[in-house]
């Protein structure tokens, strides 16, 4: 496996090895790593900077530690798996692919994620998240597992504010605080858990060497837009 010292070799060296399996080490705030990557497998050591994996278009990126802000921005395909935590505005406008965060995510995780034709953005967070989880969600799926936070609140305020499509699943028996009246929430039945959540969470668990059973145990809540409360009457032409 090719080893790249980012501070010595720079970003261009990463680009030269697209499609291969590489290890990028010594990261400390370098922005834009893995932007638009289409294939290959990248392992990252250290703390990569903002805009990691934005426009990711295939391939796989594995990060050893924490990641910063605006990660997986406008991602289209591929996989990003982070062993640590993520900063704010994770997966903004992500249209496809998978993002797995083992730790926590900051504010606005999954903001305006989407789905289009066969594409469907999937975000799984192992820990808990800040406020505005799944804000403006326009499609795709967000799962928050709250591992290690059992019995605690695993999202902040204004969860799912303004979402108009897609689903947020929380492994929790407690509804998030101040949920918008334009959303509906429900407990997830066994069949849905088995068919929809289980395959994704099992894959998540395997990537981090966790037990899928543990990640799936307990109650899940689903949050979705309430279609009966649309905003169609907002404007009138003059």
């Amino acid at each position: 496996m090719k080893v790249i010292d980012i501070r010595k070799d720079g970003q261009s060296e990463i680009r030269r090895h697209e499609g291969e399996e590489i290890l990028v080490k010594g990261c400390l705030g370098e922005r834009y790593i893995g932007e638009g990557l289409k294939s290959g497998r990248m392992h990252i050591e250290g703390t990569p900077g903002n805009a990691l994996a934005s426009y990711l278009d295939g391939g796989e990126i594995y990060v050893d530690g924490n990641v910063q802000d605006a990660v997986a921005d406008t991602m289209n395909a591929g996989l990003l798996a982070v062993k640590g935590s993520a900063g704010d505005a994770l997966c903004y406008g992500m249209r496809g692919g998978k993002v797995y965060i083992l730790g926590n995510a900051g504010y606005r995780a999954g903001v305006h994620m989407k789905a289009y034709e066969e594409k469907k953005g999937i975000l799984v967070i192992g820990g808990k998240t800040g406020s505005f989880l799944g804000e403006y969600l326009a499609g795709g799926m967000i799962i928050v597992l709250g591992l290690g936070y059992e019995g605690e609140r695993i999202t902040g305020y204004f969860c799912g504010n303004g979402m108009y499509s897609g689903t947020i699943y929380l492994r929790s028996g407690e509804m998030p605080p101040n949920l918008s009246e334009k959303l509906k929430s429900r407990y997830v039945g066994d069949m849905e858990k088995e068919e929809v959540i289980s395959p994704v969470v099992t894959d998540f668990a395997h990537r981090f060497g966790l037990s899928p059973k543990r990640c799936l145990e307990g109650t899940f809540i689903a949050i979705e837009p309430d279609e009966s409360k649309t905003n169609s009457q907002l404007y009138v032409a003059v």
Binding site: G29, G46, T47, G49, N50, N66, Q68, D69, G87
Partner: peptide, 8 residues
């Protein structure tokens, strides 16, 4: 502002 600025 950024984690990297602490880790450095």
């Amino acid at each position: 502002s950024e984690e990297a600025a602490i880790r450095v």
